[in-house]
Amino acid sequence: MTKDEIEKQLVKDFGEHIEIQTTDQPEPFLYVAKEKYVEFCKYLTENPSLAFDFLFQLGGAHFVDASGQGEKFDVILCLASSKHKHEMVLKVKLPAENLALGTVTGIWRVADFYELEAMELYGIKFPDHPHPRRLLLDDDWDYGYPMRKGWSGHPDFIPMPDKSESAE
């Protein structure tokens, strides 16, 4: 399916829960409501005309606005269909005060490791994850979530010196 066809199909079935972004990319980008996330993922795999059977990336993102006060998180999934050879990018917005999200490990097995990674590096919580454990970081890691903006929790951490200062 082409980008327009996928978007039309999704709007027809999940119109009020998704928010399609306009980009110049060849694949559709869209946000889905947090409450409908797992249901929507299941629909993407099971609908025969979409058939997104392959999750090739699940990651987190942390945004802080210029004042440094407001922060928000995204979970980003890159999906592909081996049957129809089309792709899409699915995102979920998470407020900083509640980072819990349903798990999609029952839909794509590979999401197991990706969700653990987002759990460790961004602090996004997946309460329904079937096998929560430490994956990447040190076994006795107790220094917070290193991929968040402005993180400097580890005692050995040395931030990059400001280049504008050294140029003077």
Binding site: L137, Y143, P146, G153, H154, D156, F157, I158, P159
Partner: peptide
Amino acid sequence: FYYDSYSVLK
């Protein structure tokens, strides 16, 4: 990885 690295031993 000297700067800005959370995981690499210096």
